[in-house]
């Protein structure tokens, strides 16, 4: 399991940050992602694997209007 923004979600082997974002159904582009408190740059989302049991923080910034 992973804890994403306080919510438990199912884990699968090799899960990347991109997979986590997809699992959460987030499509907003301005995100700050931290895995166990460590920042993940945007261009590493698809390669960076998230260990089982991690705590992931996905902060949405603001845009629009």
């Amino acid at each position: 399991m992973l804890k994403v923004n306080g919510q438990q979600i199912a884990y699968h082997d090799g899960m990347t940050v991109t997979d986590v974002i997809r699992a959460m159904k987030f499509n907003f582009p301005l995100l700050i992602v931290k895995v166990d408190g460590v920042y993940v740059p945007r261009d590493e989302y698809s390669n960076r694997q998230v260990p089982d049991g991690s705590e992931v923080e996905i902060i949405h910034l603001i845009s629009g209007g």
């Binding site: 700050i32 931290k34 740059p41 603001i62």
Partner: peptide, 24 residues
Amino acid sequence: CKLPWNDIEPPDNHKYPPLEAAKV
């Protein structure tokens, strides 16, 4: 115009605590 304030973010905006980051 408001848009260039936060419809584009500096790449290191993450260095701020989240509440501050929202202010860009």
